[in-house]
């Protein structure tokens, strides 16, 4: 755990700097009230009223995040496999090839169903 002390120290310095800057900004800057300044910025026109419920996003983003989780988990398994690759031998290789192939089937399915199209 000793190796984590420097990380904590660096994190503390960064945190002090970031919080300090944000606090300082509220002290050093001028404050002149103007109603228009506090409106949401939309290129100078009156802000478009927000739709009820805050609007919607394409489901693509959800699908991307889902695909990201799947590949993230794949990466998480690839790393220990890669680190002890030489010790695992051919058996480890075959194991991982099976795993990659199965995930690749999922990937090919998503591709085929248009989950990767963004136009």
């Amino acid at each position: 755990m000793n190796a984590y002390a420097p990380i904590l120290v660096l994190g503390a310095i960064a945190a002090a700097f970031a919080v300090g800057s944000v606090v300082m900004a509220s002290l050093t800057g001028p404050k002149r009230y103007n109603r228009a300044k506090l409106e949401a910025y939309e290129c100078g026109i009156e802000p478009t009223p927000q739709p009820v419920g805050g609007g919607r996003f394409p489901i693509k983003y959800y699908l991307t995040a889902m695909l990201f989780i799947v590949f993230d988990i794949e990466i998480v398994f690839l790393y220990p496999w890669a680190v002890s690759f030489d010790a695992l031998g051919i058996f480890g290789l075959v194991e991982m090839l099976l795993f990659i192939a199965t995930v690749f089937v999922a990937y090919a399915y998503v591709w085929r169903r248009g989950g990767l199209e963004w136009d």
Binding site: L67, I69, F99, T102, V103, A106, Y107, Y109, V110, R113
Partner: peptide, 15 residues
């Protein structure tokens, strides 16, 4: 290996 099938199922479900 079973996990890879689980991931496959999750993605198919999402699609």
């Amino acid at each position: 290996e079973a996990l890879s099938v689980l991931l496959l199922a999750a993605l198919v479900g999402a699609i």
